[in-house]
């Protein structure tokens, strides 16, 4: 089964995934129109900032077992077995924030949403773009990502690539693949600036 895989070292913090996500969860599904909609479409993926001002696309891991599912008072959170997606039934959701209390990743948000009953504040999080997947599209955040920080692939494939990359760096005659020089330079400067600020 394909799923969204996050490669944090490749996130440049451009926030494109957030825009694409909000647009994908809007009525019109186009950015110019989406920004005019009410309720305002909002992203399910959140680019958080790391300790060195670097980006990190934080999204629901669809944990199994999912703490949010177990803690949900009205039993509104459930799992779609086919896509292994933890979903929220917005009709049942009572906006109690119990899910935020138990989510160790901080991915829940609370607001009115185009997919929820009108004027009702509900818990909102990543739904793996199930609606898009049903139409043969990949999740919007992955489609928007230009640096490969978000990919849509079977997890074992991604794991194997990562394992290979790690083993290459430790094997004899290693061929370490350095990050691009310009990106490494920028990162160095940003680390230096953060170090200086916290002198």
């Amino acid at each position: 089964m394909k799923q969204v895989v996050v490669h944090p070292e490749r996130c440049v913090g451009c926030l494109q995934c957030m825009l694409a996500c909000a647009t994908a969860h809007s009525r019109s599904r186009t950015l110019p129109e989406a920004v005019l909609e009410s309720p305002r479409p909002r992203p399910r993926v959140h680019v958080g900032v790391g300790c060195f001002d670097e980006g990190f696309p934080n999204r629901c891991r669809h944990c199994d077992p999912a703490p949010c599912m177990l803690a949900c008072l009205p039993g509104a959170i459930y799992r779609d077995a086919q896509t292994n997606t933890v979903l929220i039934d917005t009709d049942r959701c009572i906006n109690c924030a119990s899910c935020a209390m138990v989510c160790p990743f901080g991915v829940l948000r609370y607001h009115p949403d185009v997919l929820a009953p009108p004027d009702k504040t509900v818990a909102v999080k990543c739904d793996n773009c199930i609606a898009r997947q049903q139409k043969g599209q990949i999740p919007a955040c992955v489609e928007a990502c230009r640096t490969g920080a978000l990919t849509f692939e079977p997890l074992d494939g991604a794991m194997r690539r990562k394992t290979d990359a790690v083993s290459r760096t430790v094997s004899a005659g290693r061929r370490e693949v350095p990050p691009p020089a310009g990106y490494a330079l920028l990162t160095t400067i940003k680390h230096e600036q953060v170090r200086l600020r916290s002198h």
Binding site: G48, V49, G106
Partner: peptide, 10 residues
């Protein structure tokens, strides 16, 4: 205000 999960990873 900006604290988030990523900062724990660092």
């Amino acid at each position: 205000n900006g604290f988030n999960y990523k900062q724990l990873l660092m």
